[in-house]
C-alpha cells in the first residue's frame, strides 16, 4: 500500500493554537514534492515562522498544532506524521527528513564550541564517521559552502567569524546529513545585501545539486522569487493565495497579495528609475 509518493512534505489542515485558545495558524494545507521549492511569504504575525517550526515539531511551549504534517525521507519511504510524534521519533526525523537554517546563525551556533566541533557532531551522529574520515568530511562540508580558509574556520569560535560566514556554517550543518527537505527561515535577513546575494546563490546551487526540497520562509517577496518557483502567501495565519512566482508577482489575485506586490514595486520604483 506504500505507493510511490512524490511529496517530501505534506501539510494538511494545520492549525496552531496557544494554550489560551488563540489561533495563530488556521487550516493551512500545502505540499512540497521531492526536489521542488516553495516560498512561504508573509509579514510579521502571519504565522510563517511558526509553520516552519511546526514542520520540525519545534513549536515553543504553550502552543500546540493540530491537523497533519507528513515528512517523507524518500519518495518510496513511508511518511512520518510529525504531529503527536514522540520526541524520540522527531529527533530521528530532524536532520534526515528535514533540517532548518534560521535567521540568526549566531544564536543557532553554540558560542562555546569551535566551528569544527559543531559541524562534526551531526556527521558523527548521522553518518557514524570517526577520526580522519570525520575530519575530511568536516573540511568537505566547509568547502561545499565555499568558505575560504577552512582550516581557520574549523578552529574558530562562532563570534570570530562574520555573519555571512556563520550562515554558511549553519547551512553546512543543515546539509551535513543530506536531508530530503531544507527549511530556510529568513536565512539572509540579518545579512548585508552583498552577502545576501552570495548566500542565496549558494543555497540555490546546493539545493539544485542535491535535489533537495526547499521550504523558504521570508517576508521579502523579491528574495523569495529569486530562489523558489512557487509561493504561498500567508496573512494572519491563513493562506490567502498560492501559485507560481510569475503568477503571484505579475497577476496577484487577492487584494492582500496585490498590496504586498505593489508595496514592493513602489519601493523599488525609485531605484529602478535611477539604475535602469
Amino acid at each position: 500500500m506504500n505507493a510511490r509518493d512524490p511529496r517530501a512534505l505534506d501539510v494538511n489542515g494545520l492549525t496552531i493554537r496557544t494554550d489560551q485558545g488563540r489561533t495563530l495558524v488556521s487550516d493551512l494545507s500545502f505540499s512540497i514534492n521531492a526536489g521542488s521549492r516553495l516560498g512561504l511569504v508573509g509579514e510579521s504575525g502571519s504565522g510563517k515562522s511558526l509553520t516552519a517550526l511546526a514542520v520540525l515539531g519545534l513549536l515553543p511551549p504553550g502552543m500546540n498544532a493540530s491537523g497533519s504534517i507528513v515528512l517523507r525521507e524518500a519518495p518510496d519511504a513511508p511518511g512520518t506524521e510529525v504531529i503527536g510524534a514522540t520526541e524520540q521519533r522527531l529527533t530521528g526525523l530532524r536532520g534526515r527528513a528535514a533540517t532548518v537554517v534560521f535567521q540568526e546563525p549566531l544564536t543557532a551556533l553554540d558560542p562555546l564550541m569551535r566551528i569544527g566541533g559543531q559541524l562534526a557532531e551531526p556527521l558523527r551522529r548521522w553518518r557514524g564517521l570517526r577520526g580522519p574520515a570525520l575530519r575530511r568530511a568536516v573540511a568537505e562540508a566547509l568547502e561545499q559552502v565555499r568558505l575560504p580558509d577552512p582550516d581557520r574556520i574549523t578552529r574558530a569560535y562562532p563570534h570570530e567569524i562574520s555573519g555571512g560566514q556563520r550562515q554558511r556554517v549553519a547551512l553546512a550543518m543543515a546539509l551535513a546529513c543530506d536531508p530530503a527537505l531544507l527549511i530556510a527561515d529568513e536565512p539572509t535577513t540579518a545579512l548585508d545585501v552583498t552577502v545576501q546575494s552570495e548566500v542565496l546563490a549558494l543555497l540555490d546551487g546546493l539545493v539544485a545539486q542535491r535535489g533537495m526540497a526547499l521550504l523558504f520562509v521570508s517576508h521579502d517577496l523579491a528574495v523569495v522569487s529569486s530562489v523558489t518557483d512557487h509561493v504561498l502567501v500567508l496573512k494572519d495565519g491563513a493562506a490567502v493565495e498560492s501559485g507560481s512566482v510569475d503568477d503571484i508577482v505579475r497577476r496577484p489575485q487577492h487584494p492582500y497579495t496585490r498590496d504586498l506586490v505593489d508595496s514592493a514595486r513602489h519601493l523599488e520604483s525609485a531605484l529602478e528609475r535611477i539604475v535602469r
Partner: peptide, 11 residues
C-alpha cells in the same frame, strides 16, 4: 539585532 530583528515566533 542586525538589519531586521525578524521573529522566530511570529505572533
Amino acid at each position: 539585532a542586525a538589519m531586521e530583528p525578524a521573529p522566530v515566533v511570529d505572533s
